[in-house]
Simulated assay, not measured.
Amino acid sequence: MSMPGADHERFRAEHPLLARAIDAILASVRETAELLRQGDSSGQVGSVNSFGDKQLKIDVKADEIIFSNLRSCGAVVTASSEERPDELDLGGQGFSVAFDPLDGSSIVDANFAVGAIFGIWRGAGLLHKTGAEQAAAAYAVYGPRTSVVLARPGRDGKLKVEELMLTEQGWLVCREDVRLGEKKVFAPANLRAAADNKAYADFVSACISEKYTLRYTGGFVPDVHHILTKGGGLFLNPTSSGAPAKLRLLYECAPIAFIVEAAGGASSNGAESVLKMKFDHLDRRTAITLGSREEVARSKHCLRA
């Protein structure tokens, strides 16, 4: 199941290996969507990954689906996931892929929207690279409909952000140019940090007093997708001494920040763009704010207590 349309055919001709890697991701999303519809994979498997995270059946199965498609496409040299956080040789050529196979799996049983996150880098290996070096990035949203938001090279060499929707006939481009403006919408994650991070508590209070719209589900992907769908807003995940960072730079923050910045938004770890941070180890985590440029500038001071 490949990318549709004449523009994608041009892209495929100009970037054949990258297109094959993206096709493998789209195939994985389709298979995972069907797996989620079966509704029998949310229980724990009784194991943890090497990060110490408890694994659900759905995490493990989604991970297997993605690795299988990436391996068979022939365009991926190295891949690494949150469930298997090692740099694994897949025997292909062209690109390396890091992914979170099911972002928000802990809210699957509540029937909330969940997602998956993918970053694609040129060449072999992921360590010591940065998010800015990505060739493309994508995330999937599994909700009432299944969609993928993709940042990839466009006709003029600049990054293009588009949304694809899964239909019975295949993938349909439903938005050709996803862009971010300014809107008073916010998704404040890790709110427990506000207990000992006064700057964060004050920022949340200011948003309430200024009548911001609250949109927070507990899933990184659906919360960011809401911002991109509505054309503006802010997602932030500050930290404190009692509530450290949980989001991983390689598998989650860098690919999402790449998409958001390509759409005209911004990201920050409190000091600089998240895309400037190096992957000095696979489990590096970070506080993050991303979304509309003005909102990121306004909120970055409260990321760390």
Results as ranks from 00 to 15, higher is better:
residue 3 M to P: 00
residue 4 P to D: 03
residue 7 D to M: 11
residue 15 H to G: 02
residue 23 D to L: 02
residue 39 G to D: 13
residue 41 S to W: 13
residue 42 S to K: 01
residue 43 G to Q: 15
residue 46 G to C: 08
residue 47 S to T: 11
residue 49 N to Q: 04
residue 57 K to E: 13
residue 58 I to L: 10
residue 59 D to C: 10
residue 61 K to N: 00
residue 62 A to G: 11
residue 72 S to P: 00
residue 73 C to S: 14
residue 82 E to V: 04
residue 84 R to S: 08
residue 90 L to P: 09
residue 91 G to H: 08
residue 94 G to S: 01
residue 94 G to K: 04
residue 99 F to R: 01
residue 105 S to C: 09
residue 109 D to T: 15
residue 110 A to L: 15
residue 111 N to M: 06
residue 112 F to C: 08
residue 116 A to L: 04
residue 118 F to K: 03
residue 119 G to H: 06
residue 119 G to C: 11
residue 121 W to T: 06
residue 122 R to L: 06
residue 122 R to T: 10
residue 130 T to L: 03
residue 131 G to C: 08
residue 135 A to L: 03
residue 136 A to K: 09
residue 137 A to Q: 05
residue 138 A to M: 08
residue 141 V to P: 02
residue 144 P to V: 06
residue 152 R to Q: 13
residue 160 K to Y: 00
residue 161 V to Y: 08
residue 166 L to M: 13
residue 167 T to W: 00
residue 171 W to C: 09
residue 178 V to W: 13
residue 179 R to I: 12
residue 183 K to F: 00
residue 184 K to D: 12
residue 185 V to R: 15
residue 189 A to Y: 13
residue 190 N to M: 03
residue 191 L to V: 12
residue 192 R to Y: 13
residue 193 A to W: 12
residue 198 K to R: 12
residue 201 A to N: 05
residue 201 A to D: 12
residue 203 F to S: 01
residue 204 V to F: 10
residue 207 C to Q: 07
residue 211 K to I: 03
residue 214 L to A: 02
residue 215 R to N: 12
residue 220 F to Q: 05
residue 221 V to W: 07
residue 232 G to L: 07
residue 235 F to C: 09
residue 235 F to T: 07
residue 244 P to N: 07
residue 249 L to Y: 00
residue 255 P to F: 02
residue 255 P to W: 09
residue 261 E to Y: 10
residue 263 A to Y: 04
residue 265 G to R: 13
residue 269 N to C: 14
residue 274 V to A: 12
residue 283 D to H: 13
residue 283 D to S: 15
residue 284 R to F: 06
residue 285 R to W: 05
residue 296 V to G: 06
residue 297 A to H: 11
residue 301 H to Y: 12
residue 304 R to N: 10
